[in-house]
Simulated scan of single mutants.
Amino acid sequence: MVIHALLAAALAMTSVPAQTTVDCNRVKCLALTFDDGPGPGTPTLLKTLKKEGVKATFFLMGKKVEQLPSIAKQTLEQGHAVGNHTYSHPSLPTLLDNEILDELKTTQELIEQATGQQPEMFRPPYGHTDDRVLGLADQTELSQILWTGTTLDWKLRDAKKIKAAVLRLAQRNGVILMHDTVPATVKAMPGTIRELKKRGYHFVTVPTLLRGKGPEAGTSYF
């Protein structure tokens, strides 16, 4: 009996506490989002997020998922949200209807093949969109996710400047756009996340930020 009691105590000390649901009505939430992956730097970013206990949202390109399906799968398995970022990253309003649908549907299929799950969200490349694009996303059962602030990390390409941009853009219920394909962004994340935690932010996925009120197909958010 004593041995059983000691064993039970040891297990209790080593067990990982169950995650609690973040209530963004009560705490200061922030959604970090990463576009254009998966890429070579994505596994390093995933390690950082796991170490810091942070959940994020990744908008994946179809052709990148074709190249690195295991990383796409790992992203979802670690509890992050995954969205559609088209197959080849075109400016969607410049395309014909069937071309837009092909970009979205092909990527849906590739992400499902890699992860076992189809996304409910998409992000238009460059933020280029209009009512026609949104209507076609609705046909593909996708909501449209934009952002409240973009770091322009692809242009800065400097970890200190990217960190400063994130800290400047951070706001309650904000959605920050970055790219896990930019090495400086991956490098900037550990220090950036720690500073944001000091400022009282809780990191959530986009669906969590929507508080159960989405994402709904054909609706544009943020």
Rank of each mutant, 00 (worst) to 15 (best):
residue 1 M to W: 10
residue 1 M to S: 13
residue 3 I to Q: 13
residue 6 L to W: 09
residue 6 L to V: 11
residue 7 L to R: 11
residue 19 Q to R: 12
residue 20 T to P: 09
residue 29 C to I: 00
residue 29 C to N: 02
residue 32 L to H: 08
residue 41 G to K: 02
residue 45 L to S: 04
residue 45 L to M: 01
residue 51 K to A: 15
residue 53 G to C: 03
residue 55 K to Q: 13
residue 56 A to Q: 00
residue 56 A to I: 02
residue 57 T to S: 15
residue 58 F to P: 04
residue 62 G to L: 09
residue 62 G to K: 02
residue 63 K to L: 08
residue 66 E to F: 02
residue 66 E to W: 06
residue 68 L to R: 13
residue 72 A to G: 09
residue 75 T to G: 03
residue 75 T to Q: 02
residue 85 H to G: 09
residue 85 H to C: 07
residue 86 T to D: 11
residue 86 T to N: 08
residue 89 H to C: 11
residue 93 P to W: 03
residue 95 L to C: 11
residue 95 L to K: 12
residue 97 D to V: 10
residue 99 E to S: 13
residue 99 E to F: 12
residue 106 T to M: 09
residue 107 T to C: 13
residue 114 A to F: 06
residue 121 M to F: 09
residue 129 T to N: 13
residue 142 L to W: 04
residue 144 Q to S: 14
residue 153 D to A: 04
residue 154 W to N: 08
residue 158 D to W: 01
residue 158 D to N: 15
residue 158 D to R: 03
residue 158 D to I: 05
residue 159 A to H: 10
residue 165 A to W: 08
residue 165 A to M: 08
residue 167 L to H: 09
residue 169 L to S: 10
residue 170 A to T: 00
residue 173 N to P: 00
residue 175 V to Y: 00
residue 176 I to L: 15
residue 179 H to V: 01
residue 194 R to L: 12
residue 196 L to K: 12
residue 200 G to N: 04
residue 204 V to P: 06
residue 209 L to N: 03
residue 209 L to G: 07
residue 210 L to T: 00
residue 213 K to R: 12
residue 215 P to S: 05
residue 216 E to Q: 12
residue 219 T to Q: 13
